[in-house]
Computed example of a mutant assay.
Amino acid sequence: MSAPESLLNVPLNDLHITLGARMVPFAGYSMPVQYPVGLIAEHKHTRSAAGLFDVSHMGQLRLVGPDAAAAFESLIPVDVIDLPVGKQRYGLLLNDEGGILDDLMFVNRGTDIFVIVNGACKVADIAHIQAKIGSRCEVIPMPERALLALQGPQAVTALSRLAPGVEKLVFMTGGHFTVNTGTQQIDVFLTRSGYTGEDGFEISVHASDALALANALLAQPEVKPIGLGARNSLRLEAGLPLYGNDIDTGTTPVEGALQWAIQKVRRAGGARAGGYPGATKITAQLANEAAATGKKRVGLVALERIPVREHTELQNLAGERIGEVTSGLLGPTIDKPIAMGYVPLELAALGSRVNAIVRGKAVPMEVVAMPFVPTNYFRG
């Protein structure tokens, strides 16, 4: 079954259909949500071996020019200028009120800054970046590139057979590599990173080489195809926010519990403090969170075995509405109902109790530390 005319196809669309994927609309694309083995099996396979995810709906772009780092730093509260060549960093694109337009990843490649943004936001992101800093550097979208993620504890074993040297990378570093499929050599740019909490790689490849690369990876005994359903359950267990659900223009980095991404050099007293959209508001929130913001993203575990889904109302123990769940499901690894949501600061401390209202019933939940499942990033 092909996509409706209104949906775009990723370069591997025909492969997904051949593999029996159930295709769903996502970020304007027809995307594989799961394969015949099902979401739980795909989730557990990624945790134990290696899963191949097609994330070609994501946006890829290059920022080029001697002023590119300083220009990009004017848009995000993150240290871009001092990022060493080959290193990757997580960033937050902000509006003038300090709200999050998107979260993203970027790498200093020496010749450019390579940026990956969310699929649903990429058109607006690229237009925003072009409008704000296009006079200071070249902003070059890369629609000709596909993006694959190989995730799991055996990802390095599988990929290093085809691209020797990748095993030397550590978490949040990257480089150019050649993948030997046995019949051809494929040039890729990859980073040791991902969105599952597991070790793994995100691989940018020309769309014309995506099928050969995917087939070579799927030929490895450790690797199976994994859909967006398991990607969502894996990232939630890892405590990673999903843009549009857990963070958006109505939340700041501090409210979203993402202040760890703001380096000291960009904070009050730092050498390059402020200078980004919403800096005054965010600086105030960093200095005095309790006075400056009334809510915070927290991890929640249900104390009864009842899954709590997104948009479920949260109440305090007095029965007053205090917020809602932004992501939630039965965690396949932890085997408990887990969720993220926003609660008032007085209920954000670990151990705090709230109730989720599921079909009229109050389900007790406890605020817990994230990630829900320990991460397995390879740091050397």
Rank of each mutant, 00 (worst) to 15 (best):
residue 188 V to W: 02
residue 154 Q to P: 01
residue 179 V to G: 06
residue 177 F to Y: 11
residue 153 P to M: 13
residue 105 M to I: 12
residue 127 A to W: 05
residue 156 V to F: 06
residue 138 E to P: 03
residue 114 F to T: 00
residue 164 P to M: 08
residue 112 D to T: 05
residue 165 G to W: 12
residue 190 L to A: 02
residue 177 F to G: 02
residue 144 E to T: 14
residue 104 L to A: 01
residue 157 T to C: 04
residue 146 A to Y: 10
residue 160 S to T: 14
residue 107 V to D: 00
residue 174 G to I: 04
residue 107 V to S: 13
residue 168 K to E: 08
residue 142 M to K: 15
residue 152 G to F: 04
residue 105 M to F: 08
residue 154 Q to Y: 07
residue 137 C to Q: 12
residue 191 T to W: 02
residue 106 F to M: 07
residue 163 A to I: 11
residue 132 K to V: 08
residue 110 G to L: 09
residue 115 V to M: 05
residue 187 D to F: 02
residue 183 T to N: 07
residue 175 G to L: 05
residue 112 D to M: 04
residue 116 I to C: 09
residue 182 G to W: 01
residue 177 F to C: 05
residue 171 F to L: 01
residue 121 C to D: 08
residue 113 I to G: 00
residue 133 I to H: 08
residue 126 I to S: 00
residue 108 N to L: 01
residue 136 R to D: 11
residue 149 A to G: 09
residue 128 H to A: 10
residue 157 T to D: 15
residue 180 N to Y: 02
residue 112 D to Q: 11
residue 153 P to S: 12
residue 129 I to H: 10
residue 184 Q to K: 14
residue 179 V to H: 03
residue 128 H to P: 00
residue 129 I to C: 06
residue 127 A to M: 11
residue 114 F to I: 00
residue 154 Q to L: 14
residue 119 G to A: 08
residue 181 T to Y: 03
residue 187 D to E: 14
residue 174 G to P: 06
residue 176 H to A: 05
residue 107 V to E: 01
residue 133 I to F: 06
residue 142 M to S: 15
residue 174 G to S: 06
residue 160 S to Y: 04
residue 108 N to A: 08
residue 160 S to F: 05
residue 115 V to L: 11
residue 141 P to C: 15
residue 180 N to C: 03
residue 108 N to T: 02
residue 135 S to Y: 11
residue 163 A to M: 14
residue 113 I to W: 01
residue 104 L to D: 00
residue 177 F to I: 01
residue 172 M to H: 03
residue 135 S to T: 15
residue 178 T to C: 02
residue 123 V to A: 12
residue 181 T to L: 05
residue 191 T to N: 04
residue 172 M to N: 12
residue 107 V to M: 11
residue 147 L to V: 15
residue 118 N to L: 07
residue 155 A to H: 06
residue 136 R to E: 13
residue 165 G to E: 05
residue 108 N to E: 00
residue 148 L to K: 08
residue 122 K to M: 10
residue 152 G to M: 13
residue 120 A to C: 08
residue 155 A to Q: 07
residue 178 T to A: 06
residue 149 A to E: 13
residue 182 G to H: 00
residue 109 R to D: 00
residue 145 R to E: 11
residue 165 G to N: 05
residue 133 I to P: 07
residue 176 H to R: 12
residue 105 M to P: 00
residue 191 T to E: 02
residue 127 A to Q: 15
residue 160 S to K: 12
residue 177 F to L: 12
residue 134 G to M: 12
residue 158 A to F: 06
residue 148 L to N: 09
residue 167 E to I: 06
residue 136 R to G: 11
residue 140 I to M: 14
residue 133 I to Y: 10
residue 114 F to Q: 03
residue 185 Q to P: 00
residue 110 G to T: 04
residue 141 P to W: 14
residue 119 G to K: 06
residue 136 R to V: 02
residue 173 T to P: 03
residue 176 H to C: 05
residue 148 L to M: 09
residue 134 G to K: 14
residue 120 A to W: 01
residue 167 E to D: 13
residue 175 G to C: 05
residue 122 K to Y: 04
residue 163 A to F: 04
residue 112 D to S: 14
residue 135 S to C: 08
residue 125 D to C: 13
residue 104 L to F: 09
residue 104 L to H: 07
residue 130 Q to R: 15
residue 190 L to I: 01
residue 117 V to F: 01
residue 170 V to S: 13
residue 182 G to P: 01
residue 149 A to P: 07
residue 125 D to P: 03
residue 173 T to S: 11
residue 167 E to M: 06
residue 119 G to H: 05
residue 125 D to V: 10
residue 181 T to G: 02
residue 169 L to M: 14
residue 125 D to I: 05
residue 145 R to N: 15
